[in-house]
Simulated scan of single mutants.
Amino acid sequence: MSSGAGQAPELSWTAAALRLFQLVKYENLVAGVSGGVLSTLVLHPLDLVKIRFAVSDGLRMRPKYNGIVHCIRSIWKQDGIRGLYQGVTPNVWGAGLSWGLYFFFYNAIKAYKQDGRSAQLSATQHLISAAEAGVVTLCITNPIWVTKTRLVLQYDAGVNPSKRQYKGMLHALLKIYQIEGIRGLYKGFVPGLFGTSHGALQFMAYEELKKEYSQYKKMAPDAKLNPLEYVTMAALSKVFAVTATYPYQVVRARLQDQHTQYSGVMNAVWRTWRNEGVHGFYKGVLPNVLKVTPACCITFLVYENVSQFLLDFHQS
């Protein structure tokens, strides 16, 4: 009796894992990677500007920028196009993998919770499913985001490349691991966990907007929409999520910054609040909105169309 009872939870977890594995679709992974890579290549310079503003605490010798346009012009003048694409390699890898894995796990978790039923999930179930997918994705991709931040913050890269601390993505990964260990590769992980709320809120809003719109138009829940409809819903859901969760991105970037040392998340939060007030938690928010909103629109538009194409191709 005791032996059987002890094995039951293990068997149930194994069965659940096998069921979840059966529900994963490579089409979601490929479509997510495609959308993430394309949007990153187009909009990486704005991401670079966002990070430089986010870590600008006014207490260290850093380049001073008067605004987004001045920042872009200064980097272009000093380093050329290469300067605007510092850190693009880990950004492409990170964004591609993150979007791909996020869609991959999210759709599998959502299908698992539906358990073959046609009924749609509630807003809360969408929120929890997206949060779970976000945690798994972050565990895999956090080291890539650390290397991206370090590469983006090499201010003198164009002046004297031989003095750069990191020569590229793989060099940065190895050097961070050699000097700081696994802990170094997972700097910013805790605020990153809070950041899963960003993706969760975004996916919840996106799913609810699609559901309400389909009901309004009297269409099937999974009916294909036109590009403008996808773009509109993606933009609205992204602006909603950014407004609610941006401060964590500032804290995360500062923890990953090689120029300043913090003892932990609360130390970074306290020092930002003490020195800069509420404004400090929203530094870089404008270039972030300008970057992530079109990036989200591109990603979701590519994802919806590529996934639909692959699913139709697979079924034909």
Rank of each mutant, 00 (worst) to 15 (best):
A8G: 00
Y303H: 15
H314K: 12
G264P: 05
L209V: 04
S39P: 00
L46A: 11
C296N: 15
V37M: 14
G87H: 04
R271A: 10
Y213D: 15
G192K: 07
V306E: 03
V69I: 14
L121C: 11
Y112G: 05
L185M: 05
G284P: 02
L121D: 10
F300R: 11
G80Q: 07
L18E: 13
A108F: 08
P161I: 08
V269C: 08
T14G: 08
F309I: 02
P90W: 02
L209H: 06
G168Y: 08
Y248D: 01
S122P: 07
T272H: 01
Y216W: 12
G67E: 10
T293C: 14
H171F: 10
V24Y: 13
Y102V: 00
K217S: 05
D257E: 08
T299P: 00
P227F: 04
A123W: 11
I176F: 05
Q78A: 15
R254S: 05
W93D: 02
R62E: 14
P294D: 06
T260K: 13
L225S: 08
H171I: 04
L228R: 12
H198S: 13
V265Y: 12
C296P: 00
T260I: 13
R183V: 07
V306M: 06
Y213F: 14
K77P: 00
R60E: 11
Q125G: 03
M233R: 15
H70S: 14
L173F: 14
Q249G: 09
L18Q: 13
Q215E: 13
V88P: 07
S197V: 13
T232Q: 11
L286Q: 11
Y230K: 04
D156M: 06
Y248S: 09
C139A: 14
K163I: 07
H198N: 15
F104K: 02
R19I: 00
R19E: 12
Q178F: 08
E304R: 12
L101P: 03
H279K: 13
I182D: 03
S316T: 10
G195C: 03
P294C: 04
Q154F: 07
L43F: 14
S129R: 03
T299W: 00
G134P: 03
M1S: 12
R274S: 12
L310S: 06
A16Y: 01
R150C: 02
P161H: 08
A16E: 06
Y246M: 04
T14D: 12
A200Y: 01
N91S: 15
A133L: 05
E10L: 15
K187M: 04
C297G: 06
Q256P: 01
A54S: 15
F240A: 10
Y216T: 07
G158C: 06
F309N: 02
V146E: 07
M169D: 03
F53A: 06
F309G: 00
G134A: 05
F53S: 05
L310R: 08
E229D: 13
R82M: 11
A17D: 05
T124A: 15
A17Y: 11
K291I: 00
L311V: 09
V265C: 12
L20E: 05
Q125H: 07
V285T: 10
V302H: 01
A119K: 11
S307N: 09
Y177Q: 13
K217D: 04
F203G: 03
